[in-house]
Design a protein around this nucleic acid. Sequence first.
DNA 1: CACGGCAAAAGCATTC
DNA 2: GAATGCTTTTGCCGTG
Lengths: 84, 84, 84, 84
Amino acid sequence: MTNTVDAYAVSADELRAFIERAEQIGAEKRDLSEIEKELMAEAKGRGYETKVLRKIIALRKRKPDDVTIGTAVMEMYKAALGMA
Amino acid sequence: MTNTVDAYAVSADELRAFIERAEQIGAEKRDLSEIEKELMAEAKGRGYETKVLRKIIALRKRKPDDVTIGTAVMEMYKAALGMA
Amino acid sequence: MTNTVDAYAVSADELRAFIERAEQIGAEKRDLSEIEKELMAEAKGRGYETKVLRKIIALRKRKPDDVTIGTAVMEMYKAALGMA
Amino acid sequence: MTNTVDAYAVSADELRAFIERAEQIGAEKRDLSEIEKELMAEAKGRGYETKVLRKIIALRKRKPDDVTIGTAVMEMYKAALGMA
DNA sequence: CACGGCAAAAGCATTC
DNA sequence: GAATGCTTTTGCCGTG
């Protein structure tokens, strides 16, 4: 027979499982961040400017349309402000 | 003989390699985020409050930090301030 | 009569006003950071370890948070996980 | 006569004063952030794209030289990658 | 479905 | 120049 204690125990196991899986995913993300950091350090050692590298990557990630639209609005605002 | 064009070409290959490796890492991170999202959706379907789940996870991550900061000077300052 | 030029001019004024107000706020923030820096320098001159000071401040900022998250569901989950 | 208790008491007061001043500065910074948030919300309500607004502000904050140098390297990398 | 709030991540500055 | 913490940005989720 299933009583409240059993149900609670099952719930605790399930809860713990969810949390541990989430924490595992978090750990893997942190590993990837570490690898990325090392990669950038290597690039820097090879003479590249990591700041610009990151900008390039961000640029490629965005949809081409977003960039176009974004710059169009940007130009409009700059023009309104008398910026070159 | 190595001329500027060759050097430039090599540089381009190397540059491209760095960027593609970084983008690959980014893709893996996004995959993990997707898996995490699905995990949370599953937890929600099982009746858990994902908001609280996330807080629990954050709490467990912070707990070890509090242990780390137990220096002598810290304890002295805390005592002077009447902190537990 | 309102033509596009006038509308544009008005828009430019408004845009400029928003930006200048934002920049003013940014300047005030930087002033505060500067004051904080000086304060820490003074504390250091008085013999305090600023690193520990900052940790104390961070600790006091987190303490109220722990109280905030004391929901019933949270407590239930923590109990199920054997957390204090 | 100054004994350790008095010296300690004075130190505690001084320590507390430093920390409270720092916390006060932190509170003021948070207030400014709140005001900035409201300002941006107002701008959005007036039809401006806050994302672009922030970029404009960042642009004006940087020294003109920085922008030029940054874009030069950026163009070099983009060229090497065959980006438009 | 747009909006605002919230938590995670990235980027940045500052420290030693 | 490595590392820490802070600020800013980004994505996510619930809500009107």
